[in-house]
Design a protein around this nucleic acid. Structure first.
Lengths: 221, 221
DNA sequence: TAAATAGTGTCTATAAGACACTATTCT
DNA sequence: AGAATAGTGTCTTATAGACACTATTTA
């Protein structure tokens, strides 16, 4: 490594694929660009990282600024660094996925975004700005792969307390397959990571017990 | 997003945790720093990304420059972006893991590295430069986790053709557990991703059939 | 013929998957 | 009483793990 000064520096952004479940479909939040390049096209929220913060900080800050969403579960996906991914200049982006429960969302278009809206991932307003089609494609595959390994991923898409039927619907929506009710419950409860509460959800039918996730452990960080 | 120009830009590096198996232990390649900061400390190879390349390109180029190694299997780990991780200035790094077969390596200290050497991961010359202790810790955990899911990860640490005993030793070394020979062979061969060749390895004992990996598929990229 | 490593099968225990009815509440 | 959703167990099949001996080559 030589000294820093002789090397050109890229701009670095954090981009966030924010997912939720709406009407039994996996949805992603997009923002209509209010400026060039790609004026008028839809893009995932994101923005430039600042010298005093990490990229995770930047992702959370941009999400809050552009969408008003703050209670999210963030995961770093990977870096997208094709030199020409931004037509103007050299911009490297670090992509994140973020999950929110459908009932905790309150959208708010930020000052630098013309509009913000949810789109089912099967009905995206393609082509998106920059390489965001590729970012979303990667994000969805990654989300499915992680859910297949660990049902606890669904935690991010559920309210703090939820019924097992709600959790099953989330898992079915993401994986795109129907699950057996008894086997699903057996599996979820056997791990001990989902525990019953003393609360129930009532409706015009038999009340359902509410469950919540036991504190979580992940590797690394 | 506002225009690019008003935002300060970080330097961006690619750092590579290059692993191999030596004497039945997982080893990582380190380079002794020939300049400040951390002059004289050991660090993983890496360097600044250039405007005309991706970070994967940069990782491969730096590996080749600093170590002479070129036939590697690269995986993006994650970004390390603590603002103070480099004491001089703002440097974000994208960490990679890379795997090489122990017989394909030919080390060569680069012009900007005083020395290059393999270290067993249990005997690292800590503290390493920058946050490289944390990077290696993360890299090792990630490698173990990926191997537990997919034995094919071992491909990167084996020569093109190998005996099943060699492959078993690699898996045992990384996971740190002893494996049953018959069960291991049953599992490896059942997937169809490891196939026999018509070649064998001879010694002062019964010859062993050589195997190779069938072409690989990964998600995303 | 001894030393060294390769190669091979069965049995058991556990996990995963298919499958259908009863229970409770509200209107 | 009917509509709506919650909740519950068994059997079968597939997978994973424990376990020990024979085979082939070279020196």
């Amino acid at each position: 490594m030589n000294t820093t000064t002789v090397f050109p520096r890229p701009s670095v952004t954090a981009d966030i694929a924010l997912f939720t479940i709406r009407e039994r479909a996996l949805n992603v939040l997009l923002i209509k660009r209010g400026e060039d390049p790609f004026l008028g096209r839809w893009a995932v929220p994101g923005g430039f990282v600042r010298p005093e913060e990490t990229l995770e900080d930047a992702a959370l800050r941009e999400l809050a600024e552009e969408t008003g969403v703050s209670e999210v579960l963030l995961d770093q996906l990977r870096v997208f660094s094709e030199p020409k991914r931004d037509p103007r200049t050299w911009v490297i982006t670090v992509a994140f996925t973020a999950l929110v429960a459908s009932d905790t969302l309150m959208l708010r278009a930020g000052t630098d975004a013309a509009d913000a809206s949810w789109f089912p991932i099967n009905h995206l307003p393609t082509p998106l700005a920059f390489d965001h089609d590729a970012i979303l494609d990667y994000a969805v595959k990654s989300l499915r792969a992680r859910l297949a390994v660990d049902l606890q991923i669904a935690a991010g898409l559920l309210p703090r307390r939820f019924t097992l039927t709600q959790m099953q619907e989330v898992c079915e929506t993401i994986s795109g397959t129907a699950l057996d009710k008894r086997n699903f419950r057996k599996e979820v409860l056997s791990t001990g990571s989902v525990v019953p509460t003393d609360e129930e959800k009532r409706g015009a039918h038999r009340p359902a017990l509410l469950y919540e996730f036991a504190p979580k452990r992940t590797f690394g960080g």
